[in-house]
Amino acid sequence: MTLEIVGITVLISFLFGYVIVGSIDFGAGFFNAYSLLTGKDRILTNVIQRYLSPVWEVTNVFLVFFFVGIVGFFPSTAFYYGTVLLVPLSLSLLLLGIRGSYYAFETYGARGHKGYSFMYGAAGILLPASLSIVLTISEGGFVEMVDGQPILNYRELFMSPLTWSIVVLSIAAVLYVSAVFLTWYANEAGDREATDLLRKYALIWSLPTIITASGIIWELRAHNTEHYESLLDLWWMFALSFLLFIGTVWLLWKRKNYGLAFWLLIGQFALAFYAYGISHYPYLLYPHLTIYDGFTNTAMAAALVIAFILGFCLLIPSLFLLLRLFLFNKEYVRGRKEDEHA
């Protein structure tokens, strides 16, 4: 395995981590705001807040890790993506800023403040949509080289059905992942009412997720034939992913084993995500940049890999502790009073 492959595998794994924890986080914020709007906050807020509170900052680190890592391993991405993504990513940063800080303002400063809740709920749902633009751009066709500088063609980008399908998928997937997870979490907490409501949301959002995901593969046939063909070579991964999807929905429908349903969902997304990643190989940006011509020098790559391994040894036990104390701690999930924040 070459250093290029090691680098991109680490990065895509952290991106996958961000997609999952970020989805849960953003979806939860949205459901929280929605329940305030529809007067169902009595049912949902408690469960959502208990999960979100100790982990919000960790979610953000996954994203930082990804973009610092990609510029570290592939410095040329700074040149290509840095130049073309100024506007889209600045908008993402705006949303991220509002989402992160207003979440903290509401949770630690002004519990139950409706304005703050709406602000971070709305920002959170727009955030994946804006971040997903990066994936669209990576498919190529929107960036031209003029005088050696990459230029983003906004008109093309906004007129493309691919862009909008990916936006819809990102939102649907966020709500779906989040609802499935929270159904499980609410069930663990023994909260019947919340479980039922969240289960309903999960079932509602399952269909748009799978439809847009399949639609995007089909759209790629016209947009980027090369990528489409390498996607087809990995058909078995998508087939397996689809079966896992069926499994999740079936369990939810039958009100059985929500924990397993969530793990099947992780499997479904992991298969689809990695299949997407593998088929993207070797391009970071079609057709301008591959992982080979954008790679850093060997000395830096080796240093980064060593730093990653050492960092990881520190990280895994800490993450495990966090999960054990909050996520998989029945006492905490059910809500003892002593565990209120500072």
């Binding site: 960790v58 680190v61 700074a78 040149f79 830096m300 980064l304 960092g311 990280l315 502790l321 909050f326």
Partner: peptide, 28 residues
Amino acid sequence: MELAGQVIALPLFMETFAFFFEAIFLGI
């Protein structure tokens, strides 16, 4: 970043680990 990243990406990368560590334990 394209130029300097080749030489100084290491501490930037390490910073995310420090930040990760801080974030986890602050939550706890």
